[in-house]
């Protein structure tokens, strides 16, 4: 039954499975599963999905309804596992900065939820594509979350270890590729079916390569733990800084209207 698939799809599928196994083995070998339990779980979930997929296609074929339903159900588990892995990564990056993390997580959840709702509402195309629309929404949520997190990290000059950078790059790119791939598929439908599968697997292959690169050397788990200052430092200092900035801007605005002196 698998022989019905194009050889390129089979090769990429096989390579992706192999790379997942290598990555998982490496993480277990180095004991990094203790620092990244949810990401390890996500990889295991992926492997399990591959096993279930092979079984389904061999038993029911590619066009059976049962195979379709079970296949997409397993995909839901994988997406949820990836979302949890993304949350784990976020905690590694900003979790130790309690104040910033509390603020950033709230903002990111709101932004992600807005994107998700917008994708579900404006992207609805009937029952036929409901699962795919749901996937677009979830992937958009994950991508927004990951990208937003790194924007926060950049703004606050948080130095992030390479492993986490690679993990984040992989998670973000994977979601972006998924969104693009699904959106194009919904538009072209059958004409894009083979390419859709190929692009999805190739994209995952590239992301796996990034993760293997990132996890190859044993490194620190996350951002170093800072000792937090007393809360009153922030609450007394920030209003002053912001007030001065506001005055500065107001005066600059007024200065625009000042006729410059000429020699």
């Amino acid at each position: 039954m698998l022989a019905q698939l194009p050889i390129s799809s089979l090769v990429t599928w096989g390579l992706a499975t192999l790379l997942t196994l290598i990555l998982l083995g490496r993480i277990v070998w180095l004991g990094q599963y203790r620092d990244y339990p949810l990401f390890t779980g996500y990889l295991a979930c992926n492997l399990l999905q591959t096993v279930v997929g092979v079984y389904l296609y061999r038993r029911y074929g590619f066009s059976s309804k049962s195979g379709f339903r079970i296949g997409w159900t397993t995909q839901a588990f994988v997406v949820v596992a990836r979302a949890l892995a993304a949350t784990e990564m976020c905690r590694h990056v900003l979790g130790k900065f309690r104040g910033i993390w509390a603020m950033a997580s709230r903002i990111l959840v709101i932004c992600g939820a807005l994107v998700f709702v917008a994708a579900m509402y404006f992207g609805r195309s009937g029952y036929k594509f409901a699962v795919m629309t749901l996937e677009i929404g979830l992937e958009s949520f994950i991508a927004t979350w990951v990208v937003g997190l790194f924007c926060f990290a950049r703004y606050y000059h948080v130095k992030i270890p390479e492993t986490i950078r690679m993990l984040g790059l992989g998670l973000g790119l994977h979601s972006v590729v998924k969104v693009l791939n699904d959106v194009v598929f919904e538009r072209l439908v059958k004409a894009y079916l083979i390419e859709w599968n190929y692009v999805a697997t190739s994209g995952f292959l590239a992301v796996l390569a990034i993760w293997v690169w990132g996890f190859w050397r044993p490194v620190e788990a996350g951002v170093s733990q800072p000792a937090t200052s007393a809360p009153n430092v922030y609450w007394e200092l920030m209003p002053q800084v912001n007030r001065r900035l506001l005055e500065l801007n107001e005066q600059l605005g007024q200065l625009w209207r000042t006729e410059p002196r000429r020699p």
Binding site: Y234, L237, P239
Partner: peptide
């Protein structure tokens, strides 16, 4: 200001947003 915010157990999103907005305006005018 960023370092203080990073090390603080509590931050206000309104303060942070204000600073971001004001610094953007300052840079533009500058």
């Amino acid at each position: 200001a960023r370092i203080v915010a990073l090390l603080s157990p509590e931050v206000s999103s309104s303060h942070e947003f204000d600073r971001l907005r004001l610094s953007a305006i300052f840079r533009m005018r500058f």
